[in-house]
Amino acid sequence: MSAQEQQDPTRRHPRPEFPQQDQPHPGLTGRMEPEPDHGESSYRGSDRLADRKAVVTGGDSGIGRAVALAFAREGADVLFTYLAEEEKDARETARLVEEAGRKAVPLLCDIREESECRRLVDRAVAEFGRIDVLVNNAAFQMAQPESIEGIGTEQFDRTMRTNLYGMFWLSKLSLPHIPAGGSIINTTSVQGYKPSPHLLDYAMTKGAIVTFTQGLAQYLAERGIRVNAVAPGPVWTPLIPATMPDTSEFGEQSPLGRPAQPAEMAPAYVFLASQEASYITAEIVNATGGTPLP
């Protein structure tokens, strides 16, 4: 069945129960069962981002890979970041971007450090001359069944620095290189509105991303730079077996009865980056599988 044919969303992709699986953080795509769908066989571009220059953090796997693939098939060149443990996945993302006929720039980069964020922006400008779309997608989470009592300072600091500091620094440092018509797209979460106690620190950051998005959008409106965010619900990515104690029923709580696949998130990012969204800024696109959000 093709992606264009009408399909029952509750049955389009795998549903729980999944095999119980564990991986060391940050996890790898090829070890997951079932393996995530990033749109490799289904996403078809139509030049909606022709000749755009994009930066995607956390582009080696999951939502980031799906966005990099979709952007490339829409005509964009893509620089994406990855961690050392994710090199195998990063090579596959680069292959997909290049297979679409676009330039791929994989960059080993830890956005927890301001100097690394500066290096990232400098590399993007050296490669592309500008940044048309910045996608702040990289994130860290680690489930703690004891909630606040189980969250140590090291975990708390890593969550804050990855999810908030990196986004802040990259947005600030990229601004001189984003032309009018460009955009920043952040990744928040259903957790920002409906926090789970076992993901308390992660949920805190996702709520902050909503506020950051809406405030920055107002400031940059007069420059013609739009700022929006996507709020996914449960998504089947390597972060799940690497950070959750039980994967067997993951996504079952969604009204659609299953987790999203990364491929189902990418079109929202494409839309927000495209000219079709020229009057949309300070908005949060909810892609939660039916969970109502404010």
Rank of each mutant, 00 (worst) to 15 (best):
D37G: 11
L220N: 09
I280D: 01
N136E: 09
V97W: 06
V210Y: 04
A260N: 04
A143V: 13
G150D: 06
W236L: 03
E33V: 14
I184S: 13
Q6V: 10
T93Y: 03
S42E: 05
T243Q: 04
P19E: 07
T291H: 07
P14T: 03
L108A: 12
P26A: 08
H177R: 05
R91W: 10
G290D: 07
T288E: 01
R223E: 10
P24N: 01
S171A: 15
L239P: 03
S115L: 10
A90M: 09
D110L: 12
L216V: 08
G192T: 04
Q155R: 12
V97D: 06
V105I: 15
Q253R: 15
G59R: 13
P24C: 00
S42H: 01
F271H: 08
V270C: 08
P294Q: 07
T81K: 03
G150C: 09
R223S: 11
G129D: 01
H13V: 02
F140G: 02
L79M: 09
D246R: 15
A139Y: 10
T281K: 13
G257N: 02
C109Q: 15
D22K: 05
P197N: 07
V56C: 07
E74I: 05
P26K: 09
V56I: 13
L199C: 00
S147C: 00
R65I: 02
S42F: 01
Y165H: 10
T211A: 14
A3Y: 15
R161Q: 12
I284S: 08
N228S: 09
T237R: 00
T205V: 06
A208I: 09
Q144K: 15
R31P: 05
A203C: 10
I148K: 07
L83M: 09
R15T: 11
S41M: 12
P259G: 06
I111M: 11
V133M: 12
Q141K: 14
A287Q: 12
Q21N: 03
Q261H: 02
N286C: 07
G75R: 02
M167L: 15
S61I: 04
E154H: 07
S278C: 08
F271I: 05
A66W: 04
H177I: 02
T237M: 02
E74G: 01
E127C: 09
E33F: 05
L199D: 04
P262Y: 00
E17L: 10
Q275D: 15
L28P: 05
A273E: 08
E87R: 13
E33N: 12
R11A: 14
A263W: 06
L199A: 02
S2V: 04
G45Y: 01
V135R: 12
G192H: 06
T57N: 04
I225N: 02
G45W: 03
D22V: 11
W236T: 01
A3N: 15
Y165T: 00
T162A: 04
T237V: 06
T153I: 14
S115Q: 13
Q21S: 08
F128N: 10
E127R: 12
G166V: 00
W169V: 15
M265T: 03
R48H: 04
V105R: 10
S115V: 13
D51K: 09
A143S: 14
T291R: 05
P145A: 11
T188N: 05
V55D: 13
D122G: 04
L108D: 10
H38F: 15
Q218P: 01
E35R: 15
N163R: 07
R44A: 11
